[in-house]
């Protein structure tokens, strides 16, 4: 199969988690056993849906309800840039986030953890990057929660991220972690990514520049999407 349009660079072997990660029990029956087919990138992979804020209204403050009621917990500001591997900003792209509340409970019927729900915290946000790739939202620092994967399994504090990019091959879902969390060392989902530097890039940085005095601490979390392959060399003959 010949390559078609210039596609996206393929990930390094150790910088992404595998499908089969025995320490993470849920992968056991869900990982493919056959080798994946390498798909050349065509227009299907290099184009992506567009999300207009008119149709997909932003929700950048997860801590306040429409009627002004405030969520419980430690308010934080989370901001960062979405870039590609060449350092180019990914503009006007939709960033979705979801998370547990301050007590470590998701506003989700499947979550039966014995921790209180907060009627003023849904745990869902949606923002768009600006021309420089920046996004920013205000939320509550999520709590840790147990998850039965192994003895004393507790997920480190984390925020789920869903990002689209400019090509469907850039589509990704990841998690942002917090610096200094003792649970990170024990977490098989975090540790599934073999490359230490790659997984440490999922840990946000405490950032006084983002902090709003007397109001909320700031955390910086940048996301890097795959870069484009170099354009194939033209044959002059």
């Amino acid at each position: 199969m010949s390559e078609t349009v210039p596609g996206y660079r393929r990930p390094g072997l150790l910088t992404q988690p595998p499908y089969n990660a025995p320490d993470y029990g849920s992968t056991r029956l869900r990982h493919p056993q056959q080798e994946l087919l390498r798909l050349p990138h065509t227009l299907t992979e290099t184009s992506a849906p567009r999300f207009s804020p008119q149709r997909y209204p932003a929700r950048a403050d997860l801590t306040v309800q429409a009627d002004g009621s405030a969520a419980m917990g430690e308010r934080i500001i989370v901001a960062g840039r979405v870039l590609d591997e060449d350092g180019r900003p990914v503009r006007n792209t939709m960033v979705e986030v979801w998370q547990a509340n301050a007590a470590g409970r998701y506003n989700h019927p499947g979550d039966d953890h014995d921790a209180p729900l907060d009627p003023n915290f849904q745990g869902m946000g949606r923002v768009f990057t600006d021309a420089e790739g920046w996004y920013r939202f205000v939320t509550i620092r999520p709590g840790a929660y147990p998850w039965r994967n192994h003895k004393d399994a507790w997920r480190p504090n984390h925020i789920h991220y869903s990002v689209f990019g400019a090509g469907f091959a850039q589509r990704m879902i990841t998690q942002m972690y917090f610096p200094g969390d003792p649970l990170l060392a024990l977490d098989p989902i975090f540790h599934a990514t073999p490359d230490e530097a790659a997984r440490n890039r999922l840990i946000s940085k405490f950032d006084l520049e983002l902090t709003q005095p007397e109001w909320a601490l700031g955390y910086r979390f940048d996301i890097v999407l795959r870069g484009r392959e170099a354009t194939p060399m033209e044959d002059n003959h």
Binding site: G110, M172, I173
Partner: peptide, 21 residues
């Protein structure tokens, strides 16, 4: 090396509670 040396962020599972989105 590539100009900026940035490496694509690692994916992580959407988990069981993604229905919030």
């Amino acid at each position: 090396a590539p100009m900026q040396g940035l490496v694509a962020s690692a994916h992580q599972t959407a988990g069981p509670y993604w229905h919030l989105v």
